[in-house]
């Protein structure tokens, strides 16, 4: 049996090419389960999964919930974002309380970088990072990789252009790490105000024009630009941003004819992506959502079952 030498999934950093391939292979199989009429398995029967979301996220949370349920786990959702639970109680206190309930896996989203790693030090179960601040969002990178691999048949030597707000994006960081580990060529395309310091040393070629950055690309990955960053703080206006960095039919022409268009969602139509492209033939945005459930099933199964040849006591 293939082995996966990690107890938690806190980031793509630290994963090797075989680790990633193992997860993607498993996820491929999980896609078939989700497409059957009978979607429920007993892989994680009797195990408890707690989704601890300090930041609201309908998509990611429901994707993890569905993944757990399809594997037969008992799933509990804790949305701490706006509730009183947050008041006066630290992340660690909340984690210790939940830990006392003997969960088998904690899925954590938090607005601070490193939050998932901090939790993992304090609890006795596996921890999956569902997004920590501007640090990492590993399952998103894995589902993106699965989507690409199923469409292109490989990840090595393909050209992926990641476009938009790389600075604030945990999705971009995880994708840069994963795609580099798999031998893809990564480009980032953005105005300089939206790129992190040292980006050229992070394993990405840097472009400031969509036409050049998208040239011969196999995949065009768009990132969300948050509303509060569009009106003067990082870029002057929505219309200027869309004019130079929004993906429309004209700019997409620079990429390969069969290039995939991706977006981690939720989209700002008319800001970073034109509607006709988001809904067009090259868009795989819906497939990404489907792959999300499969990848999360694969991750949980791998962490909770495979490495111990059986559920954790």
């Amino acid at each position: 049996m293939d082995s996966f030498p990690h107890r938690h999934l806190l980031g793509i950093k630290g994963l090797t090419e075989p680790d990633i391939n193992l997860l993607l292979d498993k996820a491929d199989a999980a896609v078939d389960i989700s497409r059957q009429r009978e979607k429920k398995t007993s892989t994680l029967r009797g195990l408890t999964q707690i989704n601890l979301f300090f930041e609201a996220s309908t998509r990611t949370q429901s994707s993890f919930e569905l993944a757990g349920k399809r594997l037969g786990a008992d799933v509990m959702n804790m949305s701490v974002g706006n509730s009183s639970v947050k008041k006066g109680e630290t992340l660690i206190d909340t984690a210790m309380t939940l830990n006392a309930m003997h969960p088998d896996v904690l899925v954590v989203r938090h607005s601070s970088a490193g939050a998932a790693a901090l939790l993992a030090q304090k609890v006795s179960c596996s921890v999956i990072n569902a997004g920590d601040g501007q640090h990492e969002h590993p399952t998103q990178a894995l589902l993106d990789a699965l989507t690409i691999r199923r469409a292109k048949g490989k990840l090595s030597r393909i050209i992926v252009a990641i476009c938009g707000d790389v600075l604030h994006s945990r999705v971009a960081r995880s994708n840069i790490l994963l795609l580099n580990a798999m031998g893809a060529r990564v480009r980032v395309v953005a105005p300089a105000t939206l790129l992190p310091n040292g980006i050229a040393q992070m394993g990405a070629e840097v472009y400031h024009s969509m036409e050049e950055g998208l040239k011969d690309a196999d995949v065009v990955m768009m990132l969300r630009l948050q509303r509060e960053r569009m009106s003067g703080a990082f870029v002057p206006s929505v219309r200027e941003y869309f004019r130079y960095f929004g993906l429309d039919a004209e700019k997409l022409k620079a990429a390969k004819e069969d290039a995939l268009v991706m977006h981690p969602g939720p989209m700002n139509r008319g800001v970073e992506i034109a509607s006709e492209i988001a809904d067009g033939p090259q868009s795989v945005i819906e497939q990404q959502v489907e792959m999300g459930v499969a990848v999360r099933m694969a991750v949980m199964e791998t962490l909770l079952v495979s490495q111990n040849q059986g559920p954790r006591a």
Partner: peptide, 13 residues
């Protein structure tokens, strides 16, 4: 400190 390390850690520099 602002720099590559902060960028990887996702922390403001």
């Amino acid at each position: 400190n602002e720099g590559l390390l902060a960028s990887w850690l996702g922390l403001s520099g």
